[in-house]
Design a protein around this nucleic acid. Structure first.
Ligand SMILES: Nc1ncnc2c1ncn2[C@@H]1O[C@H](COP(=O)(O)O)[C@@H](O)[C@H]1O
Length: 781
DNA sequence: CCGGACTGCACC
DNA sequence: GTTCGGT
DNA sequence: ACCGAACGTGCAGTCCGG
């Protein structure tokens, strides 16, 4: 069926102005200028960074903070490439060992006590090979080869003699493995380490015990349950600082200072540990206990809940062995970032490998090398695939322990009511790139709507749910969807899973609204009668229908089923606008049309063959996205002055993590920034103090360096003040800013001015309002 | 009891 | 959402 | 090609002072 749209009445779908999109987005990153200690700037290549925006005035004072690196900021680098620091050793700090030790473990002290074989205490870099033992060393050499790693040869990961079958897993055993994982950046090695640990867990679990493995797995990926259940810790950096202060008897201020220096609360916890240690030996922590306590923290809410949470954390910290890294990982788990270079994807592979290896052992290790290698790979693929269809360890782990890899598929299937992993898209720099990749294949281009992903399910019981891109249950946010969708469900359509984009719409003009409008909607307990900004659903895929998964059907088929089983509800539910045109000109024209209609660009998808199946696990990125700002020299770019900097965290400790950029207002002879920060206030109020608030960068710079920055869009911001008053009371900020290059040839007063920014904002806004309205074709379906 | 500050969670 | 660095 | 880690804002829950 023709997808083409024809004009129709109300349809304007296009949206609106884009104007604003989200808040100033995040900035991207930047790069920092150099690292600290190095006397020599190694420089590197490009850096990048991002921009935020900023404020006004020209006055900038720089704060003296860390002079160390700051020195640099300037010019030097400038002239040369911006530097990225890469050296890895960029270590942070001063003396501290700060940031994560990268390649080799620097681990320090804390670990020393451990009986690890290799243990050497000092900071000496340790070669990895010495760090652990290969248990079955057959090859003469002790070195771990990639081939061995790829096969997940097991490695000795026990500490303190390990634990016995049926006993609870010591938490120290887990954190010991975390430490080993953190000490390397080699993926194969990480996989092997984790596999070895999980295999131990499996072998030492009693028959029928699925909790041990399940809890260990959850702690490894730092979660408590599937995301759609919505259980959250409700604790973060600040509460943790209080807890650390409380448990060590140190002052909150001291903790904060350490954090700034070291960039990682986990390390702060470990380093501050001794001051107040009680003498009696606490009972050692177990994986199960830690998991239970974390869950407890997550479940406490309401009055005085923060104190209760802090108490639990304090209790956990007190139970950590002083010589271990337990405290570090307890804290990082609570912060939600383990930062050991291990995340879900790697865990899935390790889990699959551990299961396969345990099956092999049960069978008497009969598989030869080749067979084993092949079973490992196949196992990983099966687990990945099954997990992507039913992303719940609560289901998958018991099933694996029960029926092994072979039984998994039958046991765990896509089922409405439980979100599946979404297909993702990869950026494309030119239309030519799209053609290259899809050469000779049939493909389609669809509008890339600017809203939020909405995976809509209808279960057998008739219940509707909406899940986000990250599998969170958003049902409470969209009563409007529940009101409209039933009208779109044709007779005979019982159960289904739709993949859609939910976009804000103005129901009187039928125009699509910018993402920013959607993001400002209420999120919880929304009642239809209170809704001011309505949502329109644009369906682009159908993953399940009437009891049958469609994941292994071609996109053409799925799309046809979608059109056949659903009907359009004007302004409420539509199918994504598509064009199957395949020439550069057609694509180019459709891209422009999409932008005019208020979309971000296009999504390009293969139509036939198994390459068009909905299998997020096969290739994490299967679709292509084409946006104007990706195209060379096409997006809106700005030349802005760097006026402020924010200290980076984690890996970026000791370097700037973000920058505040300003545009230049010649009339006022001052820099008007995108951000209204302190400075802005200061000016208004005279030079009062600076501590107002959050928008304040950690450091101010002399306005001198100019960077060219590219943005996807402009948005209105309550914080930043660039071009404030020219378009609206709010200032304008950039969406998805990224550093393009240094403009050595420009001075602060050559920077982009507020009127230019205001003009661009108007232009983008107009683009959508203007034209004819696009319409929604009803008979399309 | 109210409103602001502060923090965490969710998304692009 | 974008980008980078490491494998 | 993949994975993990940096990066930012707006709503909502809790705390806290008036
Ligand atoms: N027609 C479409 N097909 C697929 N995704 C779309 C479409 N329109 C909008 N999107 C959104 O675009 C997102 C992918 O783009 P990005 O997040 O930039 O990689 C998806 O998560 C969807 O929410």
């Amino acid at each position: 069926m023709p997808v083409v749209a024809r004009q129709k009445t109300l349809g304007t779908f296009f949206t609106m102005p884009p104007g604003a999109k989200a808040p100033p987005p995040q900035q991207s990153n930047l790069h920092e200028m150099w690292r600290k200690r190095s006397s020599k700037p190694k420089d590197a290549s490009t850096g990048e960074n991002a921009a935020q925006d900023v404020d006004l005035a020209g006055r900038t004072e720089g704060k003296p903070r860390r002079r160390k690196q700051r020195t640099t900021s300037s010019p030097v680098g400038a002239s040369s490439p911006p530097v990225s620091q890469d050296d890895d050793r960029t270590e942070p700090g001063p003396s501290t060992t700060g940031g994560r030790a990268k390649r080799r473990r620097i681990i320090d002290s804390d670990d020393e006590g451990e009986p690890l074989p290799s243990a050497m205490p000092t900071d000496e870099p340790i070669e990895e090979e010495e760090e652990f033992l290969i248990s079955d060393t057959e090859e003469g050499s002790a070195a771990i080869t990639n081939a061995q790693l790829a096969m997940s040869k097991t490695v000795d990961v026990d500490v303190d003699g390990g634990w016995k079958v049926g006993e609870s897993i010591p938490y120290a055993a887990l954190t010991h493995v975390f430490g080993m994982i953190e000490a390397t950046s080699k993926r194969l090695e990480i996989t092997a380490l984790l596999t070895s640990f999980l295999l131990l867990v499996i072998k030492r679990s009693k028959e029928g015990d699925t909790d041990s493995l399940r809890q260990a797995v959850y702690l490894c990926i730092n979660r408590l349950c599937p995301d759609y259940k919505g259980l959250e810790l409700g604790i973060g950096e600040s509460l943790l600082q209080k807890a650390i202060a409380e448990s060590t008897g140190r002052k909150l201020e001291a903790i904060k200072a350490d954090l700034k220096e070291v960039g990682d609360l986990g390390l702060v916890a470990i380093n501050s540990k001794n001051s107040q240690r009680t003498l009696f030996k606490p009972k050692p922590l177990t994986v199960s206990f830690v998991f239970t306590q974390l869950t407890e923290i997550a479940m406490t809410s309401g009055n005085a809940s923060q104190n209760k949470k802090i108490q639990i954390v304090t209790k956990l910290l007190a139970a950590c062995k002083a010589t271990s890294q337990e405290a570090k990982y307890i804290i990082r788990s609570l912060e939600g970032k383990l930062r050991i270079g291990l995340a879900e994807r790697t865990l899935i592979v390790s889990l699959a490998h551990a299961i396969v290896l345990s099956e092999n052992e049960k069978g008497g290790n009969k598989w030869n090398k080749e067979t084993l290698a092949q079973k490992l790979e196949e196992g990983a693929n099966i687990v990945k695939s099954v997990y992507s269809e039913l992303p719940s360890y609560d289901h998958v782990i018991p099933a694996l322990l029960r029926g092994g890899i072979q039984g998994l598929r039958a046991d765990c299937k896509l089922s409405p009511g439980i979100p599946l992993k979404p297909m993702l898209a990869k950026p494309t720099k030119a239309i030519g790139e799209v053609l290259d990749r899809f050469e000779g294949k049939r493909f389609t281009c669809e509008y890339k709507y600017d809203g939020e992903r909405a995976q809509v399910h209808k279960t057998e019981g008739g219940e509707l749910s909406v899940f986000s891109r990250n599998s969170e249950d958003m049902s409470a946010k969209y009563p409007d969807i529940f009101e409209q969708l039933p009208k779109a469900i044709k007779d005979g359509t019982t159960t289904f899973v739709l993949d859609c984009e939910a976009v804000a719409i103005d129901r009187t003009t039928m125009r699509l609204l910018p993402f920013q409008e959607l993001s400002r909607r209420k999120r919880k307990d929304v009642k239809v009668e209170d809704i001011k900004v309505w949502v329109c659903l644009f369906a682009f895929d159908l993953l399940y229908l009437n009891g049958e998964p469609l994941l292994h059907r071609s996109l053409v088929d799925r799309r046809e089923l979608l059109r056949k089983h659903f009907a359009e509800v004007t302004g409420g539910v539509h199918v994504a606008k598509a064009s199957d045109g395949e020439t550069t000109d057609e694509i180019q024209a459709f891209l422009e049309e999409s932008v005019k209609d208020g979309c971000e660009g296009l999504m390009v998808k293969m139509l036939d063959t198994d390459a068009s199946f909905y299998e997020p696990s096969r290739r994490s990125i299967n679709w292509l996205k084409l946006k104007k700002d990706y195209l060379n020299g096409v997006g809106d770019s700005f030349d802005l002055v760097v006026v402020g900097g924010y200290h980076g965290k984690g890996k970026r400790t000791a370097v700037y993590g973000a920058f505040l950029l300003a545009c230049y207002d010649p009339d006022k002879e001052i820099l008007k920034t995108h951000a209204e920060t302190l400075k802005d206030l200061e000016v208004a109020k005279c030079r009062a103090d600076v501590d107002t608030g959050g928008a304040k960068p950690d450091v101010w710079f002399e306005p001198k360096i100019v960077w060219e920055v590219l943005a996807a869009d402009l948005s209105l911001s309550p914080i930043y003040s660039a071009a404030k008053g020219l378009v609206e009371a709010r200032g304008i900020s950039l969406r998805f800013p990224r550093f393009i290059r240094m403009r050595d040839d420009k001075n602060a007063d050559d920077a982009t001015g507020p009127e230019q920014i205001a003009e661009m904002y108007q232009r983008q806004s107009l683009a959508n309002k203007g034209g004819k309205k696009s319409k929604i074709e009803d008979d399309f379906w």
